[in-house]
Amino acid sequence: MSHADAANPEVLKAMGELFVSLPHCRTLGFEYLGTVGRKPTLRVQWREDLVGNPATGVVHGGVITSIVDTTSAVSVAANMQDYETIATLDLRIDYLKAATPGKAIYCTAECYRMASQIAFTRAVCYHDSPDDPIAHGVATFMRGSNPKPMLQVEDKP
């Protein structure tokens, strides 16, 4: 995996690392695995404290929501010419089947339309293959949502 195909490889690399380093993403243990073409992939390992239904051990839907939101944001970064701040406008998740307890969850996202003010994304969550998804998510992001940049390379956390 590389960043070579990104609109700006340096921006994608920095934003990808930034997004998984945010406190809530660290809390959940998100890992940025890299980007193929302009489709980034993140992983979250199964953990007891991420469970939503103790009767089954299935991970809470909120963890899926967070990884879809984060991976989708990285896919927008793969299409950025320069650093910019983005904010999620809306997010919809279809839970196609329950995640398997004990197995890591992967999320791969794609920004399929980068308009001047809005970015449109879609994402899938899966265990072994994106062809056998657990969840599907679509989102829109506002571009240039805040004049204060989320990342300046010199004060990167």
């Binding site: 406190p23 839907g61 909120g62 967070s66």
Partner: peptide, 16 residues
């Protein structure tokens, strides 16, 4: 937190 500069809660966390 999901944005340390504002700071703001993580969007996924709000969803969860």
């Amino acid at each position: 937190v999901g944005n340390t500069t504002l700071p703001a809660l993580h969007g996924g966390l709000i969803g969860g």
